[in-house]
Simulated assay, not measured.
Amino acid sequence: MRESPLLRVEDLALHYQTRRGVVRAVDGVSFDLQRNEALVILGESGCGKSSLAKLLMRVLPRNIHHTGGRITLGETELGTLSDERFRRQVQWSRMAMVMQASMNALNPVVKVGVQVAEPLRVLRGWSRARAMERAAEVFTLVGVSTDFLSRYPFELSGGMRQRAVLAMALVAEPELVILDEPTSALDVLTQASIMNALKRVKQEQDTSFILITHDVATSSELADRVALMYAGQLVETCDAGRFFTEPAHPYSRMLMASVPRLRQRQRPEPIPGHPPNLFDPPAGCRFAERCPHRFAPCGEDPETIRLGERHRVRCWLHDDSTRRGGR
C-alpha cells in the first residue's frame, strides 16, 4: 500500500488581472508528490510554471483576480492557515523555494553566512553561533567551502551564489524545496555541478523537490517523475523513465522529438505554431491547433485519462469511448 503523499495539489487555479484582461496562468492543475521524490515540471516559457510555484509558496503579486483549489502538505491543508501562520509554520521550515534569478537575491552588503543562517534565527530563535554552525553544515552539503561564509555576495561566482541560495533554502531542513529554473543562467559545467549537489541533498537529507524548468536535458538528471505543463494545464504526468522514452501526449512526443541527442542521427524537429493566448484560451484542447492528431472530439475540453498507477494524460486520443466513436 502506497503511503500518503507529502504534497497533494487539487484543481489549483491562479488568474491575474491586467490592463488587457484576465490571464488564466494556472487553470485546474492537480498532482501529488511523494516523500523523497523529485518532480520535474516541464513546459515552454509562459505556460504557468513559475506562477504555480509562487502559488504553492504563497508569494503572489497584488494583481490577483482569482485563486482556487486545495493544497495539502502532509496532513495540513494550507488554505486553512492565515498568512501569518503560513509564514511561521510552513515557509522555510517545511517548504522552501529557490526563486528564478535567485543569484541576484542576496543582499550585497551582508555576509553570505549571515544570510544563510537568518531563517534559523528568525523562525526558531537560534543563537548566532548555533545558526552559523548549521549554515556551515549546509555549505558543505551543497559543495561550498565554509570559507565563503565570511564573504560578501560580490566575492562569489555565479555558481557559488546559486549554491549559497540553495543552502539558504535547505538550512531549516524543509520537507520540500521548490526550484524555479535554478541553473538557467549558469554554464554547462556549473549546471552539472548544481544538479549533482541536488542529488546528494536528496539522498542525504531525504528532501523532496519540485524542479521547474524548460530544459529537458537538465531535468533528466534529477527527475523521478515528470509533469508537462501547457497553457496553464498539466497535459501529462508520469514516471521519468516512461516520459523520456515513451511519452503519451502528442505535445510530450513532439517536445522529446525537438531535443538534440548525441547518439542519434535524427535531427531535432521543431514544434510548429505558438502556444495559445492565456487572456482568451481556446475552447477544448489547448494544444489542438498545433497537434498533428487533431480530430473532432478535440473541440471539447479533454478529460484526464489514467494510463497507469501514476500516469495521467489529458488527451482524447487515450479515451476508449472517443476512439470507438462514442463522442
Score class of each variant (00 low, 15 high):
Ser4Ile: 02
Leu14Ile: 12
His15Asn: 05
Asp27Tyr: 04
Asp27Ser: 09
Glu37Tyr: 05
Leu42Lys: 07
Leu42Ile: 08
Gly46Arg: 03
Cys47His: 03
Lys49Pro: 01
Ala53Lys: 07
Lys54Arg: 15
Arg62Trp: 07
Asn63Lys: 04
His65Ser: 12
His65Lys: 14
His65Val: 01
Leu73Tyr: 06
Ser82Thr: 15
Gln89Met: 04
Ala96Pro: 03
Gly113Gln: 02
Val114Arg: 15
Pro119Lys: 06
Arg121Tyr: 00
Leu123Thr: 02
Ala131Cys: 03
Val138Asp: 06
Phe139Lys: 07
Thr146Arg: 13
Leu149Arg: 01
Ser150Phe: 05
Ser150Leu: 02
Gln162Arg: 11
Met168Cys: 06
Met168Ala: 14
Glu173Gly: 00
Thr190Ile: 15
Lys202Cys: 07
Leu211Trp: 05
Ser220Asp: 10
Leu222Gln: 06
Arg225Ile: 01
Gly232Cys: 13
Gly241Asn: 14
Arg242Asp: 10
Ser258Gly: 10
Arg261Tyr: 01
Leu262Gln: 11
Gln264Cys: 06
Pro270Lys: 11
Leu278Asn: 04
Pro281Glu: 13
Pro282Thr: 14
Arg290Val: 09
Cys291Glu: 13
Pro292Glu: 12
Arg294Leu: 12
Pro297Thr: 12
Gly299Arg: 14
Ile305Cys: 06
Arg312Met: 04
Trp316Lys: 02
Asp319Trp: 10
Thr322Gln: 11
Gly326Asp: 15
